[in-house]
Design a protein around this nucleic acid. Structure first.
Lengths: 109, 109
DNA sequence: GGATTGCGTAACGAATCGGTTACGTGTAGA
DNA sequence: TCTACACGTAACCGATTCGTTACGCAATCC
């Protein structure tokens, strides 16, 4: 159970879809979430939900027999504002790229 | 060769470190990159570099016997400005959370 | 030409992943 | 209490991941 961080959470496309659903609907029962997927069975979704919970991007609450899942956007925003921001700020500087292409590979010691 | 997207690229902590190095140094030889890791051997890093290249977040160029790697920030910025932005915009609305805690779980049909 | 350097690849193994079916458990309702 | 429902978990499977060591190949240096 090593790398249970938000990067792991969003690495899988099915989990990203789950997060999309929760973002759009606010909160959803486990079954409601599962019924949105033809690509995976209910137990499969259940395990994705557990992973998402372990990664801290989702929280669950019992309500009778229902299990209500809710999004916790904080870890995602931390990625957005933290690690990823440093790369998003980089301009793709096509001038520099062009010069590289014209002049050929930069010689180094 | 299924999911070779930028989400896959950044899922692994070693690959994130490689991207950090390239962001800080502009461009690096494969060996220079590998020498920064005690946790992985040179062939291991070489394969990470291949994955990063397949994910489109890195480009490589031959220069003599050196292989020069360079960052391509565009896919990362696309994640930042695209999918992740929708979650980053969500405020964590602690008032709503408090109300939920006070009133108990929201009853649903 | 022969040795050295830089780097990729093949082959292998342990661990994890993502899916399945079958089952167990707690709550709701008759 | 008996039944139905919602959900999680166990067990199993094939595929992938991430690390290793051994090797091959092209370029450079003497």
């Amino acid at each position: 159970m090593s790398a249970r961080d938000a990067f792991t959470a969003i690495a899988d496309p099915t989990r990203r879809e789950i997060l999309d659903l929760l973002r759009d609907h606010g909160e959803l029962m486990a079954g409601e979430i599962a019924s949105n997927f033809a690509s995976a069975s209910r137990p499969g979704i259940s395990r994705h939900l557990r992973v998402l919970k372990e990664c801290g991007v989702v929280s669950a609450e019992r309500d009778g027999q229902a299990q209500i899942y809710r999004l916790n956007p904080r870890p995602l925003r931390e990625i957005h504002d933290g690690w990823l921001a440093a790369f998003a700020r980089m301009q793709v500087d096509s001038l520099k790229a062009l010069r590289r292409r014209v002049e050929g590979p930069k010689r180094r010691a």
